[in-house]
Amino acid sequence: MTRKQKRLAIIAGLGAVLALAATLIFVAMRDQIVFFYSPSEIHEKAIAAGTSIRLGGLVKEGSWKRVGETSDFVVTDGQTEMATHYVGLLPDLFREGQGVVIEGSVTADGSFAATNVLAKHDENYMPKELVEELKKRGEWQREGAPL
């Protein structure tokens, strides 16, 4: 083998190793790339209790109960509802009927233990994915509302 052929073989080998490593990383992270899961997706995928995820949906009207810094509310996507428990201060714009994205984990009883409520852009904020899901099911009613 000439020097040129040895160099090309080494470069090709390193390229193959790099491609394999990238493939393994992307396969391992494929479920973590999602920005958030809707309540329906959490039930469909049977996400294990204790797994850190983001939950997105609407705060169900009449479900928010607050005692001090403890808040209990229900997040819905129109099909499935998920009871949520959060200890801490909520954003000023947190209201029933508004879109939220919260971080936390599913508990053993099927509710959601929130650790963080992500900041909302304004009172009309709704996650893009939720808007698309509602439009797909024909339930979108707030035409012209900014995303």
Rank of each mutant, 00 (worst) to 15 (best):
N116Q: 15
H121G: 12
E69S: 14
I53Q: 05
W140F: 04
R54Y: 10
T2S: 05
M82V: 08
A145W: 11
I11R: 10
A113N: 06
L134A: 11
P91H: 00
K45N: 13
S40T: 13
G88R: 07
L90T: 15
T70Q: 14
D92P: 07
T51R: 15
E69Y: 13
V100H: 05
L89A: 13
F112T: 00
V27P: 00
E96L: 01
G50Y: 04
I10K: 05
G138M: 10
A12V: 10
D122Q: 00
S52G: 06
E103Q: 13
R142G: 00
F26Y: 12
F26E: 05
K45T: 07
A114K: 03
E44I: 01
R142L: 12
T107W: 00
L24F: 12
P146K: 11
S111A: 06
L8G: 09
L134W: 01
G110S: 03
V27N: 04
D72K: 14
A12F: 10
L14H: 09
A9M: 03
K4F: 08
E61F: 09
E129A: 14
T107Q: 11
E143V: 12
E81M: 02
A19K: 00
D72Y: 13
R142K: 14
D92S: 14
V106C: 02
L118I: 09
G68V: 03
E81I: 05
A28R: 07
A9T: 05
F112Y: 08
V34A: 08
V87H: 12
A28D: 04
I11S: 10
G88D: 10
V17M: 09
A108C: 00
W64N: 02
A16Q: 01
I11D: 08
G56T: 05
T115P: 01
A114S: 05
G15L: 06
L89Y: 11
G50E: 02
K6V: 13
P127I: 03
V74K: 07
I102P: 00
A108L: 13
I11N: 09
